[in-house]
């Protein structure tokens, strides 16, 4: 699960988190996290985002509140999470028990040339989440943290945030479908069945 740098490999981490995922619903923030969940296996229970930077976590909140009997996992990057820090306060206020936020933190803006993010300079996203009121906010730097996190994603009774420090290498692109209407319609149908396409 380690890259040559000795840091966690993002694809291996995501593969492990999504193993035996059951009916887990996954929203991925734009860029590499969307490629990562696609590399693990594109499917209708995935919603990879192509835009809306800063919105992934709170989109997960809207879904988790709408579907309280389903588990919702948001996988995003440190740059995307930093753009929507207020979402941690909004999520903490609602305390959705079925929502997990995983931040793949490579401390860089990977899609734009590898510029450093604020986490490279000590900004601690897990501490910010705890300060917002998300009690289970963990930072993971070694492989032994991944299996317990996967368990918690399926069984937690309170929202959780996991910041996973990963290797910063850009990996080969694994692009999901690009048509947003298709991605949304298949995701809704996976959740709601054929009724998804009729008037609410």
């Amino acid at each position: 699960m380690l890259a040559p740098s000795g840091k966690l490999d993002r694809r291996a981490v995501v593969n492990a988190l999504l193993a035996d995922r059951g009916d887990l619903l996954v929203i991925a923030g734009l860029g590499a996290p969307a490629w990562d969940i696609t590399a693990a296996g594109d499917c209708p229970n995935n919603l990879p985002l192509w835009g809306g930077m800063g919105g992934a976590a709170v989109m997960g909140l809207g879904l988790a509140l709408a579907q309280p009997s389903r588990r919702v996992l948001v996988i995003t990057g440190d740059g995307e999470a930093l753009m929507g820090l207020g979402a941690l306060a909004t999520i903490a206020t609602k305390q959705p028990p079925n929502l997990a936020i995983v931040v793949l933190d490579n401390e860089h803006y990977g899609e734009t040339g590898g510029q450093e993010t604020a986490t490279k300079h000590g900004v601690d996203l897990a501490a910010i989440a705890r300060g917002a009121g998300i009690a289970d906010a963990r930072t993971i730097t070694t492989p032994d943290g991944i299996a317990p996190l996967r368990e918690a994603i399926h069984a937690a009774t309170a929202p959780l945030v996991a910041v996973i420090k990963i290797d910063a290498a850009n990996l080969p692109l694994k692009l999901p479908p690009r048509e947003g209407a298709y991605l949304a319609a298949r995701f809704r149908e996976a959740i709601l069945g054929p009724a998804a396409h009729h008037q609410l």
Partner: peptide
């Protein structure tokens, strides 16, 4: 009615997108 007080309005666009994915109108 589930009321969600946001820290900034753009959160509402993302939030309601997620709600719609889950079959809820907001």
């Amino acid at each position: 009615i589930t009321v969600v007080t946001l820290t900034t309005e753009e959160e509402g666009i993302a939030l309601l997108s997620g709600a719609w994915m889950g079959g809820v109108k907001g």
